[in-house]
Amino acid sequence: MSDHTDTNPDDNEEDGSYEFLGRVELDDQGNYQAEVFKSVDADDEPFHPDFDQVAELMGLDFHDEDVLIDALTYRAPDISQTGFDFNSPNGRGGYNQDELIRFLRETGWLGVVDIFFDEGLTEYFIMLPDNSDQLRTP
């Protein structure tokens, strides 16, 4: 076991000072990806990072509204796969991306509503929570 102080995992992978644990990807195109290593000097404590820790590891600040909107709109599930109820009084849409962002910013409902993407209409739809009457800006 060596006592490397080098912090670059790529330099140290070969001589075994860091153990490769796995890869994390947040989107289909591998934009937000991370490879996770464990130092062989570290204790054998199990490593189960939560979402915030992984995001921090990758330098993503989901408290940053721009980052969160970007992630939510990009990751919006395809509406045809979700059983979205187009007749529901809690459903709203369709928005283009700019309209959706303006709506979320104005209402402060970012992170509160579920966002869906309709590939046929190329529009976003949202489903408001049941208590939306209390949430909506009067």
Binding site: F84, D85, N87, S88, G94, L121
Partner: peptide, 20 residues
């Protein structure tokens, strides 16, 4: 968009009703 998507949206609404 509203004009072009009219029939698609109606189909979606009917589909939701049938599912319900």
């Amino acid at each position: 968009d509203c004009k072009e998507n009219y029939h698609t949206l109606i189909a979606r609404r009917v589909s939701s009703s049938v599912r319900e």
